[in-house]
């Protein structure tokens, strides 16, 4: 079953075309990767899908509903949650408070929100830090908090924007396990990542974009051997003749 379908999505900032008629289809239960060199338009694509910007053209369908230009808070309630590449914790509040803001998305009761938040924190092995001020967290924990908050909104589709950037190798491995666990619990994941080791291990399918255009799509193995991709990342000279 198709969960997210993007057709001909284009985003222009003045004269700059950041995304150029991008197509992609994400099936329910997949881990779907989006990669590309710096400035390729990955985060812009996320912002368009999650409602932070309205795309200039194209159709975005989520769960059989066209969601172009809908506001982020409404999309969140429909089951589309995201994290930010540059983490944005509510710094003066505790970890639990942060996650409760998110779990209020599906309830009005403080008690229910708190129970849900604790459940999410426990599932991420994070509950022992619930009373710590989020400004005192390490970068790895801040990334984890981003995920915890997004999960607490009970999403069908989780958009993860570079949640592994800046992590140490063992922390990356931990995060890979966390994401696999989230998928097992029934959440579809759409992930932007620069750490190839992680994205290759995780993704069922990967789309590569460069200058806003899709240059390749396929399984991790296909992508790793794709000429266009090697060109985009390493330059012409490295393509095996």
């Amino acid at each position: 079953m198709v969960l997210l379908e993007v057709r001909g999505m284009t985003k222009e900032f003045g004269g700059l075309r950041a995304i150029d008629s991008l197509d992609l289809t994400i099936e329910k239960g997949q881990i779907f990767g989006l990669i590309g060199p710096n400035g390729a338009g990955k985060s812009t694509a996320f912002n368009c899908i999650a409602g932070a910007f309205a795309p200039t053209a194209g159709v975005i369908t989520f769960n059989n509903e066209t969601i172009n230009g809908q506001k982020p808070w409404n999309l969140c309630k429909k089951g589309l949650a995201r994290t930010f590449q540059i983490v944005k914790p509510f710094a003066s509040k505790s970890v639990l408070y942060n996650v409760m803001v998110a779990s209020f998305a599906t309830t009005n009761s403080r008690q229910v929100a708190e129970e849900k938040a604790i459940k999410v924190l426990e599932s991420l092995n994070f509950a022992d830090k619930k009373d710590i001020l989020s400004s005192n967290l390490t970068i790895a924990d801040r990334k984890r908090l981003e995920i915890a908050r997004a999960l607490a909104t009970e999403p069908k589709l989780l958009l993860l924007d570079e949640v592994m950037a800046g992590l140490r190798p063992n922390e990356v491995d931990e995060m890979v396990e966390v994401l696999k666990k989230i998928r097992e619990q029934g959440t579809t994941i759409f992930v932007i990542e620069h750490i190839m080791r992680a994205i290759m291990a995780l993704s069922d399918r990967i789309v590569v974009i460069q200058f806003g255009k899709k240059i390749a799509e396929g399984t991790p193995k296909e992508i790793a051997n794709n000429e266009n991709v090697i060109k985009a990342y390493l330059g012409e000279d490295y393509v095996a003749a």
Binding site: A50, A52, K71, P72, W73, C76, K77, A81, R82, F84, K88, P89, F90, V101, A102, F104, A105, R149, A150, A152, T153
Partner: peptide, 8 residues
């Protein structure tokens, strides 16, 4: 921004 993405 973060609040909006979390349904606020």
């Amino acid at each position: 921004e973060a609040a909006m993405a979390l349904g606020v």
